[in-house]
Amino acid sequence: MDTLPRDHDMYEIRWHGRGGQGAVTSAKVLADAAFRSGFEGVTSQPSFGAERRGAPITASSRLAHEPIRILSQVTTPDIVVVLDDSLLAVANATAGMKPGGTIIVNTVKTPAELGLDGGLRIVTSDVTGAAEAAELIVGGQPMVSTAILGAFAAATGLITMESVEAAISHAFHGPAAKKNIDAARIAYDCTRA
C-alpha cells in the first residue's frame, strides 16, 4: 500500500468517535507510538469541554520533527480517522480536509461504497471485526480505540507496528495489553486502500 512521506513538516490528524468509544485513548496511544517512531514533536488532545456517551466527539493530534507550538484544535486535517462509519453521515468527518488527504474508516464497506468525495485517499479497515477476533470485548462492545492504530500504521506508514505495540504495552498491562496488540495486528492486516 502507498504510504505518506515522513519528512512532511507537520501532519494534522482529526479523530472522529463517539463518547465512550475511546477516540481520546486512540489519540494518546498514537502520540506515544509516533514519538517512539521518531517524531520528536507530537501532541494529542481531546475536544475541549464536556463529552456525552454515544455523542459524536473529536480529538486532535499533530506529528512533526520539531516540538509542536500550536495548541488549537485541528480544523484542516491531513488525516482523518473515523472509529465508526455511522459517523460519516452525522459528523461531517471530511470538513476542512487538505486536498489529497487520507481518511481512514473503521467499516466493513469498501472505499467506493462509502460515498465520500473524490480527491481524498480513502482507506478502510474492519477494526471492529479485528477487535472481535482478538476477543477484545468490554461490556459486550468490541473496543476499537487501540486496534485502529494498526489501521493507521498500515494506511500511513508514519508509525511502525513495533511502536504501536510498545505504546499499547505502556498504556495497558498484562492480558489486556496482549489483546489490544493482537487486535491492532489484525486491523493492520485487513487495511485496504
Binding site: A27, K28, A31, D32, F35, E40, G41, V42, T43, S44, Q45, P46, F48, G49, P67, I68, L71
Partner: peptide
C-alpha cells in the same frame, strides 16, 4: 498552566 490547552494535551 492553561486548562485543556496544556492540562489535557499530551506531549513529550
Amino acid at each position: 498552566y492553561d486548562g485543556f490547552l496544556l492540562s489535557h494535551t499530551m506531549m513529550p
